[in-house]
């Protein structure tokens, strides 16, 4: 199956922030956090469309997130560069080196469910 290597940059989004303030445990917060914005080229490379699920993994850990195509036009294409909001999901991919604004990860399509916050909580306790 197709795999793509990307650099995932942590970004901020006001809607995700708003959802997290109301509840970290809501579906809304999950759907806005467990979401990776990819360049159209990478979407094609992975043969996924908006809403398809991807397993993102690296040495620090792994998560299942939904894919979404970036709205940037061709002039600003960014193959190999992906964006996720700062959140407990993003932090699953961050190793312990302090102060990281971006991480490398490998993406592959998956049939698994989007990682639930309860799963992240269980991992911390394990």
């Amino acid at each position: 199956m197709a795999e793509v290597e990307v650099v995932v940059v942590a970004v901020r989004d006001i809607f995700q922030d708003e959802a997290g303030r109301k509840s970290l445990f809501s579906e809304e917060y999950k759907s806005l956090s467990a979401l990776i914005i990819l360049d159209k080229q990478d979407m094609a490379g992975l043969a996924v469309k908006d809403g398809d699920k991807l397993l993102a993994k690296n040495d620090a850990g792994s998560i299942v997130v939904a894919a979404r195509a970036s709205k940037d036009d061709a002039k600003e294409a960014h193959p190999g560069l992906a964006f996720m909001c700062s959140s407990p999901w993003y932090n699953q991919l961050v190793s312990d080196d302090s102060c990281q604004g971006s991480v490398k990860a490998t993406l592959a399509p998956t049939a698994e469910a989007i990682t639930a916050i309860s799963e992240i909580q269980a991992r911390m306790k394990s």
């Binding site: 970290l24 620090a60 959140s87 932090n91 312990d96 990281q100 909580q121 991992r123 911390m124 306790k125």
Partner: peptide, 17 residues
Amino acid sequence: SDPLSELPIGTARALAH
């Protein structure tokens, strides 16, 4: 603050223990 949400997984796990 909510360190378990905000910190890298390894550090968050260390704290959670």
